[in-house]
């Protein structure tokens, strides 16, 4: 077994990068959905996909990335990058759907205020973004928690390769398969502590920000 710290760091890096990536496209997407009625039906699509099984995402991505698959030439299978892409896709519906609600409320509150105070569309969008930021961060953190705690994608497209694509969840699965329950529980507790820690930190930041 690798040192636990390395596995934890690797997990955080992979899921953290996946989360940042997902946020990069999910939040603008949510803004688009919230500000235009034309795209509204897409919201139901994303809401419906929030609970998509991680194994399914992993499997579909595997079929895409496999050497004989359409994206096989990228040679991404069994790399951390493949997990990052998979987890980013996995949490996109979650971040989009939650951010959508936040931005929708934010728009109804702050867009009109900004406009009547003389703001251009761009300035209004900025104010909405500024005011909803703490809630948007919460939605991104929800996405991170799902990414860091998922197993299906990491196992199938990462391959649980020692020293390379082994994450906390795949380690737990392996330790369980090997009957090393103590190690599995230890890793599980670390994972839980991280999830709780992140959520606490976000609460603190939000309170500091005066938005609770």
């Amino acid at each position: 077994m690798e040192p636990i710290q390395i596995i934890v760091l690797r997990s955080l890096t992979i899921s953290g990068t996946a989360t940042l990536l997902a946020a990069l496209w999910s939040i603008p997407l949510a803004y688009l959905l919230a500000s235009s009625r034309r795209f509204r039906p897409l919201v139901y699509f994303f809401e419906a996909l929030v609970g998509i099984p991680t194994v399914l995402v992993g499997l579909l991505l595997y079929l895409l990335l496999s050497r004989n698959g359409p994206l096989g030439f990228l040679e991404l299978l069994y790399t951390p990058q493949a997990i990052i892409v998979g987890e980013a896709l996995l949490i996109t519906p979650l971040i989009t759907a939650v951010s959508y609600q936040t931005i929708l409320t934010g728009l109804s509150y702050y867009r009109e205020l900004a406009l009547t105070l003389g703001a251009s569309d761009k300035q209004a969008a900025l104010l909405v973004f500024r005011e909803t930021l703490p809630s948007l961060i919460s939605s991104v953190v929800m996405g991170f928690s799902r990414a860091v705690g998922e197993l299906g994608v990491a196992l199938i497209v990462g391959g649980n390769i020692k020293g390379y694509t082994r994450t906390m969840t795949t380690s737990i699965a392996l330790a369980t398969a090997m009957g090393e329950y103590e190690a599995a529980v230890k890793l599980g507790l670390v994972l839980t502590a991280i999830a709780v820690g992140v959520s606490l930190a976000v609460r603190l930041v939000r309170r500091e920000w005066g938005s609770e």
Binding site: Y110, E112, T116, L127, W209, G210
Partner: peptide
């Protein structure tokens, strides 16, 4: 429209306050 909006304000019955 923005230049016209700069000459008129609307105050909501239950106004929202921004952070700060």
């Amino acid at each position: 429209i923005t230049s016209y909006r700069k000459r008129v304000v609307y105050v909501h019955e239950k106004p929202v306050m921004v952070r700060g």
